[in-house]
Design a protein around this nucleic acid. Structure first.
Lengths: 218, 218
DNA sequence: AGTCTATTCAATAATTTTATTGAATAGTTG
DNA sequence: CAACTATTCAATAAAATTATTGAATAGACT
């Protein structure tokens, strides 16, 4: 094997993995799977894909070894192979938001429709925790909360927030979080909370980012 | 704009960037540009592409804002937009080497057949520097060395190594490095050095990795 | 101005990727 | 065993990507 042949093989391998990531639907699937394992049907539902199409995308991801499966009853659950997959995805996400003014503007426009949302960074949240009285609010679906969440976070899925909103204290500062910077559940929560007179902000990042930093989780 | 529309736009933007990275030739170009700026012709030469083809790939990278240009005389020099590009590339590289560990091992065993190469990690090199007598050998082309190199490294491009090998001390341990883990210059250097009776190993990573860690460079 | 040259563009054909549709599979449940 | 169901497969057509070729451009020199 000569030098060029070796290089071709090496870069082809890397490109195969990157190509598997380089599709909007599959990016969204990775983002979702960072929360924990999901069945094909759930994945299809969450990403607005047909089941067959979701399955095909999952085959591509599996072929690139980015995801692995486990079976339970009649279901097949997909999950990320390891946390390096999330780290690579996060690096691309950061790069994307950094490079692409358009994407960033898009996110901000969405966030700021109405009032200023002032997302709080993970570092800021950590400081808030150690000082003032803060409620950390997880607004993801219940199963995702159960699969792992920020330590001492309260779970009220965004769907139930309207009717359960009086479980939250008016005095405290409420920091809502969800799946990640591209997830809008936390924005919806902040909107609703502020309408009802709460002091609320969203966490800019999501639970997987918190966990990847090795911060306290449950 | 509804939720789904927002998600589509956001993930499309990210996928556009990832797609631009997800091609073997462009991966190699990014790896090369991590060393510093290069003209189109040089890039084509180093990656065994036709000039027109290299140019097209560079247009794709430029369209995704992964690279930027600067003009000097008749030449256009391409370079990475910022070091987040390198970091994302590195995350993908690590992921790739991790997911393909076994296949990669086979490739390496085949290519580096014969003796054990025992690549040294950056951390190990740092420890070696503070203690024993070690020569750090940069075997990349001269221009790349001049554009930035590990502090106190000696430059002998791989092309000149055979005839300049006696400039190196027999007593010291020689650590050769080049562009990165996928670059074979350092392997060739170690092979040659060991043949001539030197105590030589390669650095697993390359100069860009060293620099990205904020370690002493010149 | 005219020449030179590094780079880009445009046209192409071959290949790959994608979403859709409907059928097939495999494993569980009654 | 039969019925059920979550998932995958297979076939298709539309769209995108790729390398090649040769021409065009634009900027720097004489």
């Amino acid at each position: 094997m000569d030098k060029r042949e070796f290089k071709n093989k090496a870069y082809n391998e890397l490109a195969k993995i990157t190509k598997a990531l380089g599709n909007p639907r599959r990016m969204e699937i990775i983002d979702l799977l960072a929360q924990g394992p999901f069945s094909v049907e759930k994945i299809a539902e969450q990403t607005s894909l047909s089941v067959a199409n979701a399955s095909q995308h999952l085959q591509v991801l599996k072929g690139a070894r980015l995801v692995k499966i486990s079976k339970k009853g009649n279901f097949i659950y997909y999950q990320l192979t390891n946390d390096k997959v999330f780290k690579a995805w996060r690096a691309l996400r950061e790069l994307g938001l950094d490079l692409n003014a358009e994407a960033e503007k898009l996110v901000n426009d969405f966030y700021r429709s109405g009032e200023k949302m002032d997302p709080v960074s993970i570092e800021e949240l950590r400081q808030k925790i150690s000082g003032q009285n803060v409620v950390i609010l997880d607004v993801r679906p219940g199963e995702e909360y159960q699969h792992g969440h920020i330590k001492e976070a309260t779970s009220i899925p965004i769907e139930d927030l309207a009717e359960r909103i009086n479980e939250l204290p008016k005095g405290a500062e409420i920091i809502a979080y969800c799946r990640g910077p591209l997830c809008v559940y936390a924005d919806e929560a902040v909107s609703l909370l502020r309408e009802k007179g709460f002091d609320a902000k969203r966490l800019k990042e999501g639970y997987p980012d918190w966990k990847a930093l090795g911060l306290p989780a449950e």
